[in-house]
Structures are given as structure tokens and as C-alpha cells.
Design a protein around this nucleic acid. Structure first.
Lengths: 158, 158
DNA sequence: AACTACTATTGAGAATGTCAATGATTGATG
DNA sequence: CATCAATCATTGACATTCTCAATAGTAGTT
């Protein structure tokens, strides 16, 4: 193992650093809408599936503790962007569904985020970006998360 | 216009997600040494330059507020891994220098982190990793940070 | 019914991020 | 030399985020 590379070249460090930079600018771009990166993510996922998403699944998708999702949904709900609908098939679940207003804001938010992010990625050729996406997906999601039943031990960190 | 891609394909989201995954495992691997990712980063940077690093520079390197560095250095100092040495050329600065023990721990820590990270990156071909590093560097560091300890505006001052 | 497993929720405590203010020091200006 | 602005480390306050344990409600099983 060539264990003597400077930290500034370490992939984990660069990952964290780049993530911070991008998240910061995204957060700044969302501020006018009263959203943060986290709440935007919840809104986006909720808006992608008209059937709604359970909070448990949101937590798994975002790599958060389920308890964190509660507050995020609380905010979005009190802002009228999403609703908590009971799941007819399993009343333990609460399906997070974007309202009409939620969809509008989500659209606007996505444009803002895209615009902010393009500033960081425009220097990189499209083909490389696709590779980057592929690698990050691989690292971020060790195994595909099924959408239906969650039989996984989804406690996140252990 | 790629304005309608799912969030799970968004580069910023994937970046944040991958960063979290890698940081978590790195943090876990460092726990036995009493280090976290942050304190390890400080220790690593301090150990890379025998002349030491100012806290201001550490903050810039790591993308932190200077006030955050204070606590990190406090911990490392009380653990005997680094020392705060006065800068002869500018007494406002405090040069963070790794102790002998600091160097030993840093070595051990680096091996642990590398081992933990290899689990995430080993599936990716070496060439792609190099591209990944290059892209991340570009995103993470908008402009190269000069390494001069003092305010040597001899060449390339800006 | 009893039991186990799962979901959302709450709460506590630690870690992290952000921001303003301060003392010590430096460099530049008058 | 005296003064002023800028820089560095530090402190403190405050919000956000992370991590964990515990709980009520529900589901599936036996």
C-alpha cells in the first residue's frame, strides 16, 4: 500500500470537501424559498412519487436517522408543501405526498439548485460527469434499495 | 436541459451521500485511536509539514470556520499529538506541529482510514479513481491555495 | 391472546456550523 | 512616533445536525 499520500489527495477528504462546497451553494440558492438542502431533498423525493414515500424510506434514501425525517417533514407540512397521508395498506406508515404548492416550489427549487451546481460542474466534460455519477452512485448506495417492502436492517450506521 | 432528473441521480445529492458513507466508515475506523475524521485531518496536515501549519490555513484547507479549528487543536494538544508553537516571523500565528507521538498515531490512523476506504473504492478501476480525484479537486478547491507559511508575496501574490 | 418486528415520534446529549466580538499583533499611513 | 486598519487566534452564543435510547401504535405470527 502506498500509504504516504497527502491528505489533500485523499479521495475521502476530497469527497467531503467537494460535498461541502456544493451543498453550501445549493443551500444558499434555496434560501429565498425558505428551504435547505435537506428539506428540498425530502420535497423532491415526495414529489417524484405521486403515491407518496414513507418516512422510513426517506431516511434510507437520504442516509439519515428516521428521527431526523420527522422534523424535516414537520417543516414542509407546516409550510403546506407536503402532507402526511395514512397508508391504507399499513397504518404504521405515513405517506409523504407533495401538495400542489409543493410541486410548484419543488420545480422552482430544482431550477435554482441546478443553476447553482452548474457553476461547479460546467468545467467538466459531460462524459466525465456521467462517470462521476456512476462512481458516486456505487459508493453512496452499496446495494439497490427496493421500493416496496423494507426487509433490510435499515438502521443506517452501526 | 436536464431539469427533470430524479434527485437520486443528482450529482450534488450523490456527492453528499457518498461523502457521508465514506466519512462514517472512516470515523468508525478511527474510533479505536480516539480520533474523528476532523481531528485526523488536522493531525494529518500538521504532520505533513515539519514547519507546522497555522490554524488559519487549516481552516482554509478543511473548509471550516477558524473558530472550529481551535477546539480540534485543543483536543489534539491535550492528547499530546500536536503542539502550538509560536511563529517567529509573525506572532499572531500559532504553528500546529505534530509531536513524535502525533506522527506515530497519524501513521496508524492513515492505514486505518485507507483500509476502511478501500472497501468503497476497490470496485472502481484505478484510472477512473484518478479522474474522480481530479474532478473532486477541481470542485473542492476553486483556486489553488499557496503553501507559504508566512505572507511571502514574493511570487504569484494575489 | 401473547409475542415479535416495524413505523413514527420524542427527547437527550454530542458534534458541527455560523456569526459576532475581543485581545494581541502586524503593516501601513500620517 | 502615533494612529488606524487588517489579520490571527480565541471566546461565546446560537442554530443545525447527528446519534441513541425509549415509547405508542400497528402488523404479522404463533
Amino acid at each position: 500500500m502506498s500509504t504516504n499520500h497527502p491528505l489533500a489527495e485523499d479521495l475521502g477528504f476530497l469527497l467531503s470537501r467537494a460535498s461541502g462546497v456544493v451543498a453550501r451553494s445549493a443551500s444558499a440558492s434555496l434560501a429565498p424559498l425558505g428551504l435547505r438542502v435537506r428539506s428540498y431533498s425530502v420535497l423532491a423525493f415526495a414529489g417524484e412519487d405521486s403515491a407518496g414515500v414513507t418516512q422510513r424510506r426517506l431516511a434510507a434514501l437520504m442516509g439519515l436517522d428516521p428521527s431526523q425525517v420527522v422534523a424535516l417533514v414537520d417543516d414542509l407540512e407546516s409550510s403546506g408543501l407536503v402532507t402526511r397521508a395514512p397508508d391504507p395498506t399499513d397504518r404504521r406508515n405515513k405517506l409523504i405526498i407533495a401538495t400542489e404548492k409543493g410541486h410548484r416550489i419543488r420545480e422552482e427549487a430544482q431550477q435554482r439548485v441546478d443553476r447553482a451546481q452548474s457553476g461547479h460542474f460546467d468545467g467538466v466534460p459531460q462524459q466525465h460527469l456521467e462517470q462521476l455519477r456512476s462512481m458516486l452512485r456505487r459508493i453512496a448506495i452499496p446495494e439497490e434499495v427496493p421500493a416496496g417492502s423494507g426487509t433490510e436492517s435499515a438502521s443506517g450506521a452501526q
